[in-house]
Simulated scan of single mutants.
Amino acid sequence: MRSRKKAVVNSTSRLMDTEELREYTKLGRNSAMKLGEEVGAKIKIGRRVLWDRTKIDQYFDRLTGVK
């Protein structure tokens, strides 16, 4: 059986992969990817997909009213 690699969220990097996005938002894979696409945080570099932490944070700030 394959063991899963635990994603470690590095708060200093702006871009994160899908596993880091899942850990950061505490959502499942599909929900995290849907959220990232809806807020415009998806960045494709070749075949690699990365997510912009700044745009995710801005979305949550607007959602919660934090300034």
Results as ranks from 00 to 15, higher is better:
R62C: 12
A41F: 06
M33P: 00
A41C: 08
T64Y: 15
S13M: 04
S3P: 02
Q58I: 14
A7Q: 05
S11R: 12
R22D: 09
K26R: 12
Y24V: 08
V66I: 15
K5Y: 01
R2P: 06
R62A: 14
N10D: 08
R22L: 10
D61C: 13
S13I: 09
R47P: 11
K6C: 09
E20T: 01
L63P: 10
A41I: 06
L21V: 05
R29M: 07
T18M: 13
D17M: 02
K44S: 13
T12P: 00
R53C: 03
L21D: 05
M33F: 07
R62I: 14
W51K: 04
A7C: 05
G65Y: 08
L50K: 12
R47V: 10
S3F: 03
I43V: 14
W51T: 05
G40S: 02
I56R: 04
E19C: 02
R2D: 05
L15Y: 01
R14I: 01
R2M: 06
S13Y: 03
R14N: 04
F60C: 12
L15F: 03
G36H: 04
T54R: 14
Q58M: 15
G28D: 06
M16E: 03
R22Y: 08
G46S: 11
V49P: 04
I43L: 13
T25K: 05
N30H: 10
G46D: 08
M33D: 09
R47H: 14
D52I: 02
M1I: 00
M16H: 04
N10I: 02
V8A: 12
G40A: 02
M16C: 06
R2A: 07
Q58R: 15
T54Q: 15
V66G: 09
G28W: 07
E20F: 00
T54A: 10
A32E: 10
L50P: 08
K34A: 15
T25L: 13
L63H: 15
G40Q: 07
G40V: 06
R14E: 05
K6D: 13
R14S: 01
K6Y: 13
T12I: 01
R22F: 04
R48G: 05
G28S: 11
W51E: 06
